[in-house]
Amino acid sequence: MSKTFDRIAAITFLAVGALFMVESLRISKSAYGSAVGPNVFPFLLGLILVLLSIKLLFETAKYAHSESEKLPLQYKKFFIILLAAVFYAALLETVGYVITTFVFLVIGFQAMEKGGLWKSVLFAACFSLGVYGLYVKLLQGTLPSWPIWLQ
C-alpha cells in the first residue's frame, strides 16, 4: 500500500480503538454469573487496535520515499471475507461461538491463500476451541454455547 493510505488507515484505526476503549468504560463492570464483565473484551480489543495503529504509524515513517509498483486490489477476497463476516454475525447466537468461529476462520484463511486446507482447519479448530475454553471455562465468561441439537 502507499504511505499516505497506510497513515490514514493508522490514524482512523487509532481513533476507532480509542473510541472502543472509552465507550467500553461506560459498560457495566460486572455481569450476572460471570467473573469477567462485558467491558473487558471491548476494552482489550480497543487497546490492541490502538497499539497496532501506533506500530503502523511508526512503520510508515520508515517507508522509502519512492512509490513502489501498485498492487491490484483484491475485490474477490474482500467480498468473500465480508460475506463470511456477515454470516458469522448473523449465525453466532443460533449456531454457537465455536462452530461459527471455526467456519469463519477456515473461509477467511482459504480466501486469503488457497491450499493448506488441513493447516487452516487445524488452526481454526485450535483457536475457536482454545478461546472458548479459556474464556468460558477458565475465566467463567459467557459466549454463545453449542447449538441446541448438539447439547
Rank of each mutant, 00 (worst) to 15 (best):
L138T: 08
L45D: 03
L150K: 05
F20G: 12
G130P: 12
A15S: 11
W118M: 05
V16M: 11
A111P: 07
E113Q: 13
L150I: 11
A89P: 03
M1H: 08
E69W: 06
F109A: 14
L49M: 15
L139N: 02
Q140S: 10
K70N: 01
L71M: 10
E93S: 09
L117E: 11
L122H: 06
F102N: 13
F43G: 09
F41G: 03
G96E: 08
F20T: 15
L45M: 11
K70M: 05
W149D: 04
L44P: 10
G46A: 06
A35H: 07
P144K: 00
G130W: 14
L56K: 01
Q74G: 04
R26V: 15
S145M: 06
K77Y: 12
K70H: 01
K137T: 12
V121H: 08
A35M: 14
I54D: 08
E23R: 08
V86G: 11
V36A: 07
E67C: 07
V131I: 14
L129N: 10
I107A: 08
Y132P: 07
F78L: 06
A35T: 14
Y97P: 06
F87R: 02
V121S: 06
G141T: 02
V95E: 09
M112R: 06
A90T: 02
V36R: 02
I54L: 13
L117P: 03
V40Q: 04
L73P: 02
G141N: 01
I27N: 04
S2C: 04
L143Y: 03
G17S: 10
T4A: 12
A90R: 00
P147I: 11
M112V: 09
L139I: 04
E69M: 09
F79R: 13
Q140N: 12
K70G: 03
L117R: 13
A111N: 03
S24V: 02
S120Q: 09
H65T: 00
E113W: 08
I148L: 09
L57W: 02
G133N: 10
A10S: 09
L83Y: 04
F79M: 03
Y88T: 05
K29L: 08
W149V: 15
L143W: 04
E67M: 10
H65G: 07
V36Y: 02
A64Y: 05
F127R: 03
V98C: 05
M1F: 00
A111E: 03
F58K: 13
P147T: 14
S128P: 09
L122R: 11
S128K: 02
A35F: 10
L139E: 01
E67S: 15
L91S: 15
V40C: 08
P38Y: 01
A125I: 03
L129C: 07
W149P: 01
L52I: 12
K3V: 10
K55I: 04
I107D: 04
F104W: 14
S128Y: 04
I107H: 02
L82H: 08
L82S: 12
G116Q: 14
A9M: 12
N39Y: 01
P42C: 01
I99C: 14
F13G: 12
L52C: 15
K29V: 13
G96N: 06
E59R: 15
F87A: 09
